[in-house]
């Protein structure tokens, strides 16, 4: 039994799959393009349609999809272990509701500000996710002894409901076109047509993944129980703090890039666990890689099935994820 070899082999297999999907996805789309022309640098950029379709329309959305998919899937894994609840998602703790409220306010207040080139809606949604994370964190750590995962879960669920009500209220006050735009944002979209939003989301997601990389064994122990994890050498409170904050911030960054795309954070970790077991040293990286591939594929469906119309990618993930989720529930009971 060589554990290291197994870890490397399995994760490598997932990596190969993710890379293959990411290499293939930009080559297909609603229009057929010539790759030779797209990469022909003798053709001036301004007249090279194939290159612009490849590099402006497709590649950024594949990269955004991969980044968002990897982040949501990994954050889902971390939060499921932290809350010891297989049905937790990156959105369970209010992050997406906060982000949606932020985006909603940006739309209805017609905010046009931008910071370092990031536009109003992503900015406002990220701010909203920070507010939600802050509130939940403050509530959960108000009890004297560390972070209570029960309070975390309750506070998150309550905040979700409360923010959803606020969203409806703002939506009600907004005019029709604005409300529609905000609702559309909530269905998720990856057609960023630009590399800058991706680059802007990267640092935070990178920091979060660095934190995730330190966690797998701790997450295994937390899955077995906080008390026994403590007895086996885990500093529970700092570990829970790190898990909650890094997963929440990464989710906030991902949502501000692609909108609150649902179901990735729950389907992917479960599928991965069904394939490789529950060892987080495999589940965490494999979920990130599989999440990247999965969202890129869902987005491929979103942009091709009804072309030239777009289906919101969140609708595609929900159409696949909803039935899967139900199957999971039935299978559990």
């Amino acid at each position: 039994m060589n554990i290291r070899r197994r870890l490397i082999t399995v994760v490598a297999a997932f990596a190969v799959f993710a890379i293959a999907v990411m290499l293939w996805a930009p080559t297909v789309g609603s229009t057929s393009i010539s790759l030779a022309r797209a990469f022909d640098r003798t053709i001036p950029w301004d007249s090279n349609v194939d290159a612009q379709i490849f590099f402006v329309a497709r590649l950024p959305r594949v990269l955004a999809g991969a980044l968002v998919g990897a982040t949501l899937a990994a954050a889902g894994v971390v939060l499921q272990a932290l809350l010891r609840n297989p049905l937790a998602t990156p959105f369970t703790l209010g992050v997406s509701a906060g982000a949606s409220l932020g985006a909603m306010l940006a739309v209805t207040m017609k905010l046009e500000l931008s910071l370092l080139g990031i536009t109003a809606i992503p900015l406002a949604s990220f701010a909203g996710s920070l507010v939600a994370t802050g509130i939940v964190y403050a509530l959960a750590s108000s009890q004297r002894r560390g972070l209570s995962t029960n309070v975390l879960l309750l506070a998150g669920v309550t905040l979700n409901a409360f923010f959803s009500a606020l969203i409806l209220f703002v939506q009600y006050l907004a005019d029709f076109a604005e409300a529609l735009r905000a609702i559309r944002w909530m269905m998720g979209g990856l057609d960023v047509a630009d590399y800058f939003p991706i680059i802007a989301a990267l640092p935070l997601i990178f920091v979060a993944f660095a934190a995730f990389a330190m966690m797998p064994r701790t997450l295994n122990l937390l899955s077995v129980g906080a008390e026994s994890a403590a007895a086996k050498g885990v500093d529970i409170v700092p570990a829970q703090r790190l898990a909650f904050l890094s997963a929440s911030l990464a989710t906030g960054a991902a949502v501000s890039l692609g909108g609150p795309i649902g179901f990735i954070g729950i389907i992917v970790p479960h599928l991965v666990r069904l394939m490789v077991g529950s060892d987080h040293r495999i589940v965490l990286p494999a979920s990130a890689l599989f999440g990247a591939a999965f969202l890129v594929l869902c987005d491929l469906v979103a942009r091709m099935v009804m072309s030239p119309l777009e289906i919101p990618v969140g609708v595609v993930t929900a159409l696949i994820g909803g039935p899967f989720f139900l199957w999971l529930l039935v299978r559990k009971s």
């Binding site: 229009t31 349609v49 329309a57 559309r184 057609d191 072309s307 030239p308 119309l309």
Partner: peptide, 17 residues
């Protein structure tokens, strides 16, 4: 497209020129 309005991708705009 037999609709009053449509959400379209940048790819569609690039392709339809």
């Amino acid at each position: 497209i037999d609709k009053e309005s449509a959400q379209i991708s940048t790819e569609t705009i690039l392709a339809r020129r």
